[in-house]
């Protein structure tokens, strides 16, 4: 493994239920004439943790960005928490407030303090009273272990700290599903661990997570299911043990040998 995880995760509070959190069926997407996602079928259950891997350009980021409609799909169905994503803006905003997203480049709001970043959406979308929103925000900032930075601006924090703030910001909306779009790819090596540790803690709380990442150690330790994508299609999916030790498709084997080879 590229990065051995420091510990196995505590699974006492996690359980994959039968309840369906996300249902994607026959979904296709084009960028202009480029067929970027081809006939995607994917069912995610409540409490499930999925890691999506694949070479760049394989459509993995686009796939999770379709789940909260940052990208629009052109055919097929996406149902999130029982709400189908269509052009109805109300539904889209509702899905977005239930689904948290963490970006590769953090995308914190640089003109607001860390605390304001975290309270903004609860106050303006959920109509939470400011005082209460701040209490909740401080709880989550403590959870990601940076409560002392609450008054600073994002530009004053390191990359790892910024990404943890971004996670806390998403959590403040108390989402039922979290999407991670290569959350550690823009980080210096020594900061990757602090972000992964935060994500592992989240996993231990039973959060439904879909994570696009190249951290195979994390995938092995945390994921229930690893999905391998190539050329806009799901090529292989399996539990992490079999996925890493006994990949069935030739393409998967090649990919694994390339990223784990050194």
């Amino acid at each position: 493994m590229s990065k051995a995880m420091t510990r196995d995760i505590d699974t006492s509070r996690t359980a994959v239920t039968d309840e369906v959190a996300i249902e994607i069926s026959g979904m296709n997407k084009w960028f202009g004439s480029f067929h970027v996602l081809r006939d995607i079928d994917l069912t995610v259950h409540r409490g499930e943790r999925i890691v999506i891997a694949g070479p760049s350009g394989s459509g993995k980021s686009t796939l999770i960005r379709c789940i909260n409609r940052l990208e629009e799909h052109q055919s097929g169905r996406i149902v999130v928490d029982g709400i189908e994503l269509t052009n109805d803006i109300k539904n889209i905003d509702k899905v977005r407030s239930e689904v948290g997203m963490v970006f590769q480049h953090f995308n914190l709001f640089p003109h607001l303090t860390v605390l304001e970043n975290c309270t903004l959406a609860p106050i303006w979308v959920r109509k939470t009273p400011r005082r209460q929103a701040e209490t909740t925000a401080m709880e989550y900032l403590e959870k990601v272990r940076i409560p002392e930075q609450a008054g600073k601006y994002p530009g004053q924090l390191s990359g790892g700290q910024q990404q943890r703030v971004a996670i806390a910001r998403s959590l403040c909306m108390q989402p039922r599903i979290m999407l991670f779009d290569e959350p550690t790819s823009a980080l210096d090596p020594e900061m990757i661990k602090e972000v992964l540790d935060t994500m592992i803690e989240l996993a231990e709380d039973g959060m439904t997570m879909i994570c696009v990442t190249h951290e195979m150690g994390f995938a092995q330790a945390v994921a229930h299911r690893v999905i391998f994508m190539d050329q806009g299609q799901i090529v292989e999916q399996n539990n992490p043990h079999d996925f890493f030790h006994n990949p069935r498709s030739e393409r998967t084997r090649l990919f694994l040998s390339q990223i784990l080879g050194h």
């Binding site: 909260n68 940052l70 905003d93 709001f109 959406a121 910001r169 998403s170």
Partner: peptide, 13 residues
């Protein structure tokens, strides 16, 4: 950066 729009969107604003 486009990320600012996306972050705002992703929070349901």
């Amino acid at each position: 950066p486009r990320g600012q729009y996306e972050a705002a969107d992703s929070l349901g604003l």
